[in-house]
Design a protein around this nucleic acid. Structure first.
Lengths: 263, 263
DNA sequence: ATTATCTATAGATCTATAGATAATGC
DNA sequence: ATTATCTATAGATCTATAGATAATGC
């Protein structure tokens, strides 16, 4: 060993805590540990129901140490919110551009809904529940709400472009957007009902939500996307076409994304 | 005047407050005023985000006076929750009994969904938002959650009994229940988006949510009910049949209800 | 007598600032 | 020197109990 025995390997005064709790206490930076702990607590007990003390305890630091990383509790929530819509927004921007020509609205909508469902499903600690907190109505979180309004508008446009005429007549583009988002976010409720959320620290726990017997080829995410098209009055045949097209769209996006990451 | 000028007309020491705030400060009992104030605050700021002080201030009494009516803040929430599911449960019990013979599943489901949507729409202060609070996961509110599980199961049974085979295969009865409740509760989101909720004190503010131009015969509630059947794969023609049948079912229920009230 | 409030107050939090301290990094 | 923690602590709140008080009801 170079100097003292098993040091933290990071700068800064060591934590007073025993650093007891098993497995992966590290891997995440201090800041990330705080975000992870806060996400878990906010979704269980709400924003106001979670004290800075509770967050710090979970991380294994003193309450006051939080303020080195964040100016206040509200900044922690703001960061969690903005990082959780980001994937959808990114995907949406890439997809809507190519809608009139290369891609049908139904295919694009199916792709968008299944991406959103998948993101919400894989998110640690069911972060989507934060969207339901009354506190986000505060002007402080306007930027986040604006992003959601934007996303809803895109759902509305895509939906109105492929819905059965009867549905457009009954709902109109705006409410179509609300209905579709509400359906995609059903994942939040499903995870809540399953209780005792897995969502381990940083590791991406994929799938395994409620298919005890052995689900067919169609994933839960695609089932939800299919429900989005169904509520717009599309037939099973039309939905299957959209599903196939969506697979291509998503494949293309993933490649492009990879290219961007590499470059 | 009999004795002193304009007294409160009620027993108990008078409130210290100026009793300023305009209109209908009365009509409601003290207890009801507290419930009304708490409902408004809980849905705006959440349960933990609302102090007993804030509730009392809104009512116009001292913080400590709340404890004469309720043992604690949690009892106020419990009462709000239980009173808000009651109408649905009552309707459901009367309706499901007659389902195999006199009434089709699609008709019953249409009726149930539009009753639920209507109830949520008319509720003061958009009380349905309380269902979204993380705090209700607490064991303390288990009775309420159990009622919702029960309601969801009924949605699931009715839905599975009338859904297109493809939908049953994809979702299964359980998830059908979750999807249908989620759709019915879209009213909560619509009211939230409209912001600045009307929902005056005790008066039942009906309708007027977002039909700026002039909606056709079909109410918003029926539009939502129709979406519930649509997501199950029913055609417009089948939905219209269900709508007609639902009108009869609801009519019958209202009469029966009236009879009960009178008796 | 009963009802519905009031005042006084204890004790437990909760957020946040100020400044000290113990590591790493150069 | 920089980083990430620590200790000490102020000041604001928050829930809840105890007991007094001012009405109505009989």
């Amino acid at each position: 060993m170079s100097s003292t025995a098993s040091t933290t390997g990071r700068a800064g005064r060591p934590r007073a805590s025993a650093d007891s709790t098993s497995s992966a206490a590290s891997a995440l930076s201090g800041r990330e540990q705080i975000l992870d702990a806060a996400a878990a607590l906010f979704s269980e007990a709400g924003f106001s129901g979670t004290s800075t003390r509770a967050i710090a305890d979970r991380v294994g630091i003193r309450q006051q140490s939080l303020y080195y990383h964040f100016a206040g509790k509200d900044e922690i929530l703001a960061e969690l919110l903005s990082s959780s819509v980001r994937p959808s927004i990114e995907f949406v921007e890439s997809i809507e551009a190519q809608v009139p020509g290369e891609v049908t609205p139904a295919g694009a909508l199916f792709a968008l809904a299944s991406i959103d469902a998948g993101t919400l499903r894989r998110t640690p600690h069911n972060i989507g529940t934060l969207y339901l907190l009354p506190e986000i109505q505060d002007p402080r979180y306007k930027a986040f709400r604006d992003q959601r309004v934007q996303l809803r508008a895109i759902y509305g446009r895509l939906g109105a472009a492929c819905a059965h005429p009867d549905v457009i007549a009954a709902l109109g583009q705006e409410r179509i957007g609300v209905v579709l988002i509400q359906l995609a976010e059903i994942v939040i409720q499903l995870r809540r009902n399953d209780g005792a959320d897995t969502g381990a620290g940083g590791s991406t726990v994929i799938g395994t939500v409620t298919s005890p017997v052995a689900s067919p080829v169609i994933s839960d995410d695609e089932t939800i996307a299919a429900s989005c098209l169904r509520v717009l009055g599309l037939t099973s045949a039309q939905i299957d076409v959209a599903r196939t097209e969506a697979a291509t769209i998503i494949g293309t996006f993933l490649h492009r994304d990879l290219a961007v990451t590499v470059a």
